[in-house]
Design a protein around this nucleic acid. Sequence first.
DNA 1: GCCCATAGTATCGGAAATGATACCGTCATG
DNA 2: CATGACGGTATCATTTCCGATACTATGGGC
Lengths: 117, 117
Amino acid sequence: MTRIRHKSLACSPGCAVEATLQYIDGKWKGVILYHLLHGTLRFNEIRKRLPNITQRMLTTQLRELEHDGFVLRTVYPEVPPKVEYSLTTRGRTLEPVIMALKKWGDENTAFGQDTPP
Amino acid sequence: MTRIRHKSLACSPGCAVEATLQYIDGKWKGVILYHLLHGTLRFNEIRKRLPNITQRMLTTQLRELEHDGFVLRTVYPEVPPKVEYSLTTRGRTLEPVIMALKKWGDENTAFGQDTPP
DNA sequence: GCCCATAGTATCGGAAATGATACCGTCATG
DNA sequence: CATGACGGTATCATTTCCGATACTATGGGC
């Protein structure tokens, strides 16, 4: 059910590079983590920030991030449901990585913008 | 023929993160770039450093890296063939990204080793 | 009674990424 | 004349990922 990533990983030195990439690949995880760096968000709040993601994708990506220990999922027993997502301590260790990605993207692609809510 | 990556990219702010990831995803590119950071390498030298990659995969990944302007491919008209791969200036701009990935991997996974040739 | 919001699941199908395997050309060596 | 080194291609099968769509539960407001 939960995807079986992080399989063989049989490179030699630069293996650490691959290992890290395995965690943040998946088309949406990078951005999700980026947004969570700025604070706790509810499910639909994340969704608004990722206009093209489907509900299913967001759910699975969040589940994987949770499974990998980067994200904390807090369910409030209310109706309508309320679920908050935030970074764990381990999740925050990815900050330098995410920011390096962001920086490169800003400087080398057509995305130097930041639209505040 | 050449894969059509870098498609929609319709996230809002953290888009730059995704944009960068699109270039270095692909299961092998990260490591390839990492090894090339240390200097020019021939085809089979790279292959030795990535025990599990198939010839086809190495070729396609290198072609994509070349297409994206990160890698320079130099063919020497000799027999047997000799082809060298090195980073372009643009390729070197990825160094902080690669090193951030490497560092995180070293500190947070079971890959704190570096086996010298 | 009916609709809405929230945070999901379930199911299906297609596209894309990766892997396995076999083959190619040329010259040097034995 | 067979073999090996090097840097590939070609073809096919499989795995994996991703998207579209439909469905669910519950309580509050109208």
